[in-house]
């Protein structure tokens, strides 16, 4: 359920690397229970911003709160209250399905009993109970991505950050993956997601588009299409980013 309570609060966020301005005065809010699409061309500054919001890097200036915690002083509390999953790194390939779950549960300090209960439930819903002792590297990519997402929200975080979660996944699994995202959002988890699939931008409640370190557009997909007189999000994106190619 989308609320009006701001769970990510960003005001005048600036991040500089020497003379290069990666994030140029960003301002936005993400509301609790929302699916927020964070789009932008390669090198537009998405990854930089995402790192700051996850507490992995400090901004140069600005006022930023994630899940109510300050990114300058309370990064440990932020990390405890978020989940993270990316296409590049998700699960340990040489550990089994269950070992991965137990490991991540352990990191977030869940009790053994709780880990066992939630793992059983999770494996049941994903239909993976029979292969709980299989190594991750023996699973098809689609299953891995679905499992990785479940593991990222295993500790029931307030926010989950997804960095291109569906890259290279087949069209059926990609849709199943989005159904899982909807389910997580319905359970009250805020979803912050980046993607290069423009049809996926349509699945988000609101979408922001970054160009050259600035947020150039932020609205619902419908609103953006109206604003840019475009039929699809792909057109919106091309109109915005085309003539502003960054290096």
């Amino acid at each position: 359920m989308v609320t009006t309570e701001s769970i990510i609060h960003v005001r005048n966020m600036v991040k500089k690397f020497g003379g290069f301005v990666a994030n140029d005065n960003l301002n936005f809010d993400v509301y609790r229970g929302e699916i927020f699409g964070f789009l932008g061309a390669n090198g537009a500054g998405k990854t930089t911003a995402m790192k700051i919001l996850c507490g992995l890097s400090l901004p140069t200036s600005g006022e930023i709160k994630v899940a109510g915690f300050d990114v300058y002083k309370e990064t440990n509390l932020i990390k405890r209250n978020i989940g993270y999953m990316s296409q590049r790194f998700s699960l340990y390939e040489d550990l089994s399905v269950y070992e991965n779950i137990r490991f991540y549960g352990g990191i977030y300090g869940l009790s053994r009993k709780l880990i066992r209960e939630r793992a059983d439930f999770l494996l049941e819903t994903l239909n993976l109970s029979d292969i709980r002792n299989k190594l991750i590297k023996d699973l098809p990519l689609g299953w891995r991505q679905k499992l990785a997402f479940s593991v990222a929200i295993f500790h029931k975080p307030g926010i989950v950050f997804l960095d291109e979660p569906t890259g290279g996944v087949d069209p059926i699994t990609r849709r199943q993956f989005w159904e899982m995202i909807y389910q997580a959002a319905a359970d009250g988890i805020t979803v912050f997601v980046t993607t290069h699939y423009m049809d996926e931008a349509e699945y988000c409640n609101r979408v922001s588009i970054m160009v050259d370190g600035k947020i150039r557009a932020l609205d619902t997909p419908e609103g953006l299409k109206k604003q840019f007189a475009a039929a699809t999000m792909n057109e919106v994106f091309l109109k915005l980013a085309r003539n502003n190619q960054s290096v």
Binding site: G40, A41, G167, H196, Q245
Partner: peptide, 13 residues
Amino acid sequence: DEPTTGVDAVSRK
């Protein structure tokens, strides 16, 4: 081999 994977929509076009 997958020249456009992980590349944004503009560069892909």
